[in-house]
């Protein structure tokens, strides 16, 4: 039997259970519409401004960094899987198996170090830090 049929079945179940709960709740729950209920919750105050707020650029930096490293793990996984077999077979030396991965990771780590030093993962900068930044350039 194919594994994926079972997984698909679980996906279906995973969808049906929430839907079922929603259906049950729909039958049970009351509905008393009232405008103020539906207002955005801002600690009881009248909501101010829109929700599309500007947020810290660092979120974006981190997302980009993640993209790089996530993809990198995707590329490392095949290597990790065959590693044991490759080590056990005598056809290739340990160096030949290890070196490409080390080179790959080292390049990535250089990238990380660069991002680190250039403040990509620096969440908040104090005024002093910003000033220092300005002086350096």
């Amino acid at each position: 039997m194919n594994d994926w049929i079972a997984i698909g079945a679980l996906a279906l179940v995973g969808l049906l259970i929430p839907l079922g709960m929603m259906a049950v709740s729909y039958l049970l729950r009351p509905s008393v519409p009232e405008t103020s209920k539906r207002a955005t919750y801002e600690s009881g105050e009248v909501p101010t401004g829109g929700t599309r707020i500007r947020f810290n650029i660092q979120y974006y930096m981190v997302a980009l960094l993640f993209l790089v490293f996530d993809i990198e793990t995707v590329l490392l996984f095949p290597w990790a899987v065959v590693y044991l077999d490759a080590v056990e077979s005598d056809a290739v030396s340990l160096f030949e198996i290890l070196a490409p991965m080390v080179a790959f990771v080292v390049i990535l780590l250089i990238g990380l170090a660069w991002a680190w030093r250039n403040g990509a993962v620096e969440w908040a900068q104090t005024t002093r830090q910003v000033d220092a930044e300005g002086n350096r350039s």
Binding site: G111, A113, W114, R117, N118, R136
Partner: peptide, 15 residues
């Protein structure tokens, strides 16, 4: 290219 990155990591925003 990597050497330049390393340089920039050691000495960020170098001009």
């Amino acid at each position: 290219a990597l050497a330049l990155f390393v340089f920039d990591s050691i000495n960020p925003r170098s001009t």
